[in-house]
């Protein structure tokens, strides 16, 4: 198995709160890797540090054998890591199609001069971006809303749109932050199929999720965070039996003493 991403001793502190301490984990190419833990365990913070939204206090990420730049989101995306947000963050005034097209920004390079003169390269690139975006909407199953404004989509469709937008950046690693949150049973099943399809197309998935059934059904391996520490990392069946994990969940998050 080839290693895609290695987190080495990642630490992140907010004032007096150690949100992440010494977190190390390894994600292999082609797997679905789950990241679970009680509320406030530091899962989203891990995403933020990984994608460059925050700079870690210590440690580094190695992606495809090279150290990722810290605190530079656009460079991280260029390397091939895309993410979605726990609380959906779409470009509200743009159409669904345009949201996905915006996601393709980093893979295009038309200059202002090219745009002004509408040279061949620019026109061709624009056409390809539009077509690709439409294909991605189809891929996640919301192409019938292509021209609808993003803010008018239903909650489940907004989640799918966010995934399509992330896929438009052509990632090798797709990081999903609680994609099933707020979805009903049918939508969750559809989401599960979608993630399996994404994995089938060769994209590695890093998944934060509270829905235990979804995590256990989808993930090849799971890491458990509690109070910013990794307390377990194993195949789902083993993690479910792990004493420390059961303790963390029964302990009720913050009340649990360390």
């Amino acid at each position: 198995m080839i290693t895609l991403l290695e987190a080495r001793n990642i630490g992140k502190r907010f004032g007096g709160l150690q949100a992440l301490s010494d977190v190390s984990l390894t994600i292999r190419k082609g797997e679905v890797y789950g990241l679970i833990g009680p509320n406030g365990a530091g899962k989203t913070t891990f995403f933020n540090v990984l994608t460059g939204a925050y700079t870690p206090d210590g440690g580094e990420f190695v992606f495809n054998g090279a150290v990722l730049p810290s605190g530079k989101p656009h460079l991280v995306v260029a390397q091939g890591i895309a993410r979605t947000f726990q609380n959906i963050r779409l470009f509200r005034e743009l159409s669904a199609l345009e949201n996905v097209m915006a996601g393709h920004h980093i893979r295009t390079n038309a200059s202002v001069w090219g745009i002004l003169t509408q040279n061949r390269h620019t026109v061709e690139e624009e056409r390809l971006t539009t077509e690709r975006a439409y294909e991605l909407l189809k891929y996640v199953g919301i192409e019938r809303f292509a021209t609808a404004t993003a803010k008018n989509l239903s909650y489940g469709d907004q989640r799918r749109l966010e995934i399509a937008r992330a896929l438009a950046t052509e990632p090798q690693l797709l990081a999903l932050d609680e994609p099933a949150a707020g979805m009903n049973a049918t939508e969750t099943v559809q989401l599960k199929n979608l993630i399996e399809q994404i994995r089938g197309d060769g994209i590695t998935v890093l998944l934060i999720e509270h829905d235990v059934k979804l995590v256990m059904g989808l993930c090849d391996r799971v890491a458990v965070l509690d109070f910013g520490r990794k307390i377990a990392e194993d195949v789902p069946a083993e993690v479910q039996k792990n004493e420390a994990v059961i303790g963390a969940y029964l302990g009720g998050g913050h009340k649990h003493a360390h």
Partner: peptide, 9 residues
């Protein structure tokens, strides 16, 4: 924030 997260400089 989302713009940064899709790689816009």
């Amino acid at each position: 924030l989302a713009a940064k997260a899709i790689g816009i400089n």
